[in-house]
Design a binder for these strands. Structure first.
Length: 583
DNA sequence: GCCGTTTTCGGCCCGACTGTTTTCAGTCG
């Protein structure tokens, strides 16, 4: 072997399996698509690189994954060892298009891709856009003007992502690179700055800042990292690269005396920086990335704490630096005591393999304990979401019994952990729920959620959601706006009315921590804080690995100025339960 | 192709919406 072959990431591998599912879908092969999708999900949710898992545990470690059996494990082995596998190549030959690109468009599925390729030779996004703009698609059988318009809108939406990526997707990569830099012998301190540090829900690129007295050696090492694909520029203080993951990354090397000023400057936001510099000028200073200066003399700059203090400000946590009132609050020393990343005691939305989750109740409990939680609510889907094998009243009752038995077992084993029974109940079009009130009354935690009719007009949608919140058994409104970042817009809700109703009815609003949900979003959280509405930060875990997403929800809550007192699952169990309507 | 509190073969789950259609396919959750 000459140069090391770049290792496939779990994301790459999951993508290949998803393409397999789509290819089988085109062939109208029954059941296989679901099987491949399930396997893709399991791999995408994995923390540890699949290659590493395979290297250590062989085929058995692969088949141990949920949804991975003998055949898929064999395919994965081949994929890991050779970069592809025969069955994938065979299927791809039949429809040789850029599947990932085309399927990323909302409303475009495998059948449409196949038809477009067969009839118009469309192979990628550019082909598709050209054909749609030329009005060619509307003339195909089973297509029409509306479909053509939908495709163009879908492409627009995809574009508006502007190459920004989900924080949850980027954060592990950023932390890993940060650790790599920290381990360089010439590096004294390394930190990730930018929007990652501010925990913005999406990230455009990565900014790293290091202290070193040997910048050239650091830059040399940096550009030779295997994660680096292309070097845009390389200098003494700044190097700019494209990573294999598709992200751009900047590395800046600064002397220790400037680190705080540089960290502040490169953390942003731009608006916060400008406001800070204006404040400095008013006080007779000059502020730049090298420090706070009075004339030629540097009065602060080694640490952020020192910098903010010199300006007469309380330390402003990075999540608040958006120039949305934080500087004024810091002047009055009236910043909120933000909820901390270690403050959560429970998780009030957890799915299991009773419906569309990957793992059993017991496995989720184990993982929650390992994540340092004291309680979780099991909230599987209900019946009208049939594709998830949603629970009906009988199934919910059976699950309540299973949970009661598990709690008894935990107590017997001396474990201080409580499993609450719950459900993620569907809100019907008219605002009624798809589970009988009598059964809801027996559950510890009832979450209600919109999973259908996303496009109702504002008045009707708001009326619908309010009616659900007024149900005396509904404790929490799950992912209140239903948005999927970069994929689906939020439902059209009068958010003020929802917050007012939450206050009036005592309904908790969720901050769903899934990377592509983060719903409520930061600005709505801040409205809730102002209105004194309680919220819950939930992982919405569908697999044991998902509890780590809670950190994203906490980041979002901090961006919304939330304190521990606003977040019910940061409270001890007894206090939290008293807060719920059904208690 | 996966899986097992319906257990090693025979299931794999439904229902709504949209846009295209004359009775339904594709997509989504």
């Amino acid at each position: 072997m000459t140069t090391a072959q770049r290792e496939l990431s779990n994301r790459d591998i999951a993508q290949v399996l998803l393409e397999m599912a789509a290819l089988y879908e085109m062939e109208e092969v029954p059941f296989k698509p679901r099987a491949y999708e399930r396997a893709a999900m399991a791999i995408a949710a994995l923390d540890e690189p699949l290659a590493q898992r395979y290297a250590q545990g062989g085929l058995a470690a692969l088949t141990a994954l949920p949804g991975v059996g003998k055949s898929i494990a064999e395919h994965l082995k081949e994929l890991l060892e050779t970069g592809t596998f025969r069955e994938y190549e065979r299927l791809k030959r039949k429809v040789p298009v850029n599947l990932g690109e085309l399927l990323a468009i909302e409303g475009v599925g495998p059948k449409m891709v196949k038809a477009l390729w067969q009839q118009l030779g469309i192979r990628d996004l550019a082909d598709l856009e050209r054909a749609a703009r030329a009005g060619q698609i509307r003339h195909l059988p089973h297509f029409g003007v509306k479909t053509e318009e939908k495709i163009l809108r879908g492409i627009e939406l995809l574009r508006s992502a502007q190459g920004r990526r989900l924080l949850g997707e980027v954060l592990p990569e950023a932390r890993q690179l940060e650790a790599t830099l920290r381990a360089f012998p010439e590096v004294e301190v390394a930190m990730v700055a930018g929007s990652v540090r501010r925990m913005r829900e999406t990230v455009g690129d990565l900014d790293f800042l290091v202290i070193s007295s040997q910048p050239q050696a650091v830059m040399e090492r940096f550009v030779r990292l295997p994660v680096v694909q292309h070097v845009y520029s390389k200098g003494e203080t700044r190097t700019s690269v494209r990573l294999h993951s598709g992200l751009d990354a900047d590395l800046r090397v600064v002397p220790a005396a400037s680190f705080g000023a540089a960290l502040s400057y490169f953390t942003g936001s731009k608006a916060h920086n400008i406001a800070l510099r204006e404040l400095a000028i008013k006080q007779g200073y000059k502020l730049n990335e090298y420090g706070l200066f009075k004339g030629e003399r540097r009065v602060a700059g080694a640490s952020e704490e020192e910098l903010y203090a010199a300006l007469g400000l309380a330390f402003i946590p990075p999540e608040l630096r958006e120039d949305s009132g934080e500087i004024e609050a810091a002047q009055r020393h009236a910043l909120p005591q933000l909820i901390d990343y270690h403050d959560l005691r429970g998780d009030l939305q957890v799915q299991t393999n009773w419906t569309d989750g990957a793992h059993s109740i017991e496995e989720m409990v184990e993982a929650a304990m390992a994540a340092g939680l004291e309680y979780i609510a099991i909230t599987d889907h209900t019946k009208s979401l049939a594709m998830t094998r949603g629970a009906d009243e009988d199934k919910l009752r059976r699950q309540m019994e299973a949970i009661a038995a598990l709690n008894a077992k935990l107590r017997q084993a001396g474990k201080r952990f409580t499993v609450l029974s719950g459900a993620e109940v569907n809100i019907n079009r008219d605002g009624s729920l798809d589970i009988d009130d009598a059964v809801l009354a027996e559950l510890d935690v009832v979450g209600a959620a919109v999973h259908s009719h996303f496009n109702l007009p504002r008045a009707e949608q708001t009326r619908r959601v309010l009616r659900a919140m007024e149900n005396p058994h509904v404790d929490i409104l799950f992912h209140p706006t239903g948005r999927l970042i970069h994929r689906r817009p939020p439902i059209d809700l009068d958010i003020e009315a929802v917050i007012e109703a939450a206050q009036r009815t005592g309904t908790v609003l969720e901050i769903n921590a899934m990377p592509d949900r983060l719903d409520l979003r930061d600005e709505y959280i801040r409205k809730c804080v102002a209105a004194g509405v309680r919220m819950a930060i939930d992982s919405d875990a569908h697999a044991v690995e998902h509890f780590r997403y809670l950190a994203l929800g906490i980041g979002q809550a901090r961006r919304g100025w939330a304190e521990r007192r606003h977040i019910v699952n940061a409270w001890p169990l007894a206090q939290m339960r008293k807060m719920l309507k059904s208690a």
